[in-house]
Design a protein around this nucleic acid. Structure first.
Lengths: 149, 149
DNA sequence: GTTGTTGCAAAAGGTTTGCATGTAT
DNA sequence: ATACATGCAAACCTTTTGCAACAAC
């Protein structure tokens, strides 16, 4: 059984995008990409910046932002806006659309998927002659662990 | 048939909140409240500020922000964050929880409600032993009118 | 050699806060 | 008379941008 390698797939996606847009490869961007993909969390730009800084001490915040925008354009990452004025980013590879349960107390994010809700959303939008391009469902509350505290 | 008066209800809610927290009434805040409630749109703070300015030319932006925070604390209004770094506010009175269809082209917001989706969200959260406190469903796409353009 | 990438600093954009003054109780 | 509300300006925080130096092709 061959283990699927997310990072390689991300690199391929990015390489194709770079070629298509006449952009150049860069060491820094590759490291930012690896750091984002290997982290299983939904990082803020600042968290990602701090992680990357361990490897590239003099990296600039702007470089991280520019890389993140490029990853979103490639389809490698997704920008999430759970709360005002602080974006988080999630790798997008080979995951179906999913929703988020967000714990208000520990800030943990649980990814969930419900086919029936997805289907009903389509029915709902059709009722309004609305063409759905994307959607997000966020449920805020108290996770299992925080309930005991 | 007596028409339900949203503004009066909002005023009552606010009055109770002010008393409970030893706050004072204010002319400006009342005008901001009326302007918000009477507008049926999802205003940004700036849009609200500009509307209020017609009545109180020298009103400050800070006053609008302070009022909006208070309205949210009262349960009179709800802060929406459809896109990064620009909040919109909707009056909350006597409306059931609802979701939003947001047109990416004309920025129109359609309020919708689907009981079945609401119910399935409860089932979903129970599956994860998650206690839901609030949730939001936002569907982005192309509204009926924009499809013909 | 040309052009994209980077770090830095400055700017931008939305929101909040400090402070002296005004206003409600 | 006390303490909250206000307008103004400055501060704040996240994100973007201009620019000269650097790196990839």
């Amino acid at each position: 059984m061959i283990e699927f390698n997310k990072l390689d797939k991300a690199k391929d996606l990015m390489a194709a995008y770079l070629v298509k847009n006449n952009l150049k490869t860069s060491q820094n961007r590759n490291i930012i990409l690896r750091t984002l993909i290997n982290s299983q969390e939904h990082l803020t730009s600042e968290e990602l910046y701090n992680l990357v800084k361990e490897e590239i001490p003099n990296i600039g915040m702007a470089t991280v932002y520019r890389a993140l925008r490029l990853f979103c354009d490639c389809g490698i990452a997704n920008e999430l806006n759970f709360q005002k004025s602080k974006s988080r980013y999630e790798p997008l590879l080979d995951i179906k659309h999913h929703d988020h349960l967000i714990c208000k107390y520990c800030s943990k994010v649980i990814e969930v998927c419900d086919e029936e809700i997805e289907r009903l959303q389509e029915v709902l939008t059709e009722k309004y002659d609305f063409i759905m391009e994307s959607h997000k469902l966020e449920i805020y509350g108290l996770c299992k662990e925080c309930q005991t505290n």
